[in-house]
Write a protein that binds this DNA or RNA. Structure first.
Lengths: 213, 213
DNA sequence: GTCTATATCGCGATAGAC
DNA sequence: GTCTATCGCGATATAGAC
């Protein structure tokens, strides 16, 4: 591709990385800062000037690293969702007991909320609008895989293995559960009164056993 | 009407209402349309030109009815939250049985989501940013009253009356429950497979009895 | 009550110097 | 890799004719 005339020219540049090769340093720093600002103010309310200011550079300089504001958000969300999917799948194949499997799913989800709160907040607040925009459609595949291959599959397993009653609409159960889990973005604090593991236990209790005395 | 000359001038205007007296007609129509657009595209992504277009008028004409775009959103949310609070309080004082009281709270909340979906979606997507903006602070009072006077009080009652186990952190229970209920904005359809009452029953089952078989 | 016309501002993005 | 400078556009809001 591009222009190497004879043999040469070939090793002249770690630049021209706009396509997607990662710096792993400055690029990642900027994305981390941008995540925070997007989460705090909302994507539409955040200007590239805001992001630049938080990074200590001017807005124009951001375009050396990224093609557009949209591209920044897309990269932030894609990376995080990929990591989340891997952790989910790991739990799915490595946990035998039905109740423990569900509990560990809770723990993965809650850890995501606790340790990538900015991404979690962006997804909670904006995903339902982003998913209709062409640029962000790649996120929908990941979302659907998490929904179907991870959660819905595990819920089906739980019915088969006798943990969950068979007369409850599992699509509704899934929606209620995900709503309960994702809403933790509004209050979960990794340094709070309870550990993530303890909170996963509480979710397991309320969802499987119920609150009755 | 307008200008009948003789006795006249005294009854010349239902206008000059900018302060807050309600038309109940055009004003309400515009607010209903605006709610829809705000919910669909997000508040920050909606221009006053968009709202005008959906109403069949030009953006400048909106300022005859409202002081600003912010004022439109505030009025939409205040009205709805006031109505919701009234319905909640009615359930609280009129239901004796502990389990039924909780179920009826679910039904009020789910009806709100089903029949005022635009407001519910706006609140779900934007409340956490709006609550930090001075203009929208009046909403926080209503939110806190719903949280404390309605839900938290009823949960306390439920423990006292023996419905709910006493070893569960009720603040966490409240947050989990509200997350589960509000997430219904993403899927609840009043003409869907289940009635609102049936869905309230399902919520009661999953929260009180649990999903175990 | 709506339209015409416009003021004023901040946005995303670009080009080229350094 | 960042800055200087700026383009072109669309945003909220206003003033006054009709």
């Amino acid at each position: 591709m591009s222009d190497s005339p004879v043999h040469s020219r070939s090793a002249a540049k770690p630049r021209g990385r706009r396509a997607g090769v990662q710096d792993s340093t400055r690029r990642a720093e900027i994305l981390a800062t941008a995540s925070q600002v997007f989460a705090d103010r909302g994507y539409a309310n955040t200007s590239v000037r805001d992001i630049g200011a938080e990074c200590g550079i001017l807005s124009g300089s951001l375009y050396h690293h990224f093609l557009s504001k949209d591209a920044m958000l897309l990269e932030i969300l894609e990376r995080s969702m990929d990591g989340l999917l891997v952790k989910y799948l790991n739990v799915k194949v490595s946990t035998d007991d039905s109740r423990a499997r569900l509990r560990n799913l809770f723990e993965v989800a809650l850890s995501f909320v606790a340790y990538e709160p900015n991404v979690a907040r962006i997804l909670q607040n904006e995903f339902n609008q982003l998913k209709h925009i062409d640029t962000f459609r790649p996120l929908l595949n990941r979302y659907n895989e998490i929904r179907k291959v991870v959660w819905r599959d595990v819920l089906d397993q739980s019915v088969e293995e006798g943990l969950i009653r068979s007369d409850f609409d599992l699509d509704m159960a899934y929606r209620i559960i995900m709503g309960a889990v994702l809403s933790a973005v509004h209050w979960l604090n990794p340094d709070g009164e309870y550990s993530i593991g303890q909170i996963a236990d509480q979710y397991t209790i309320i969802i499987i056993d119920g609150l009755h005395s």
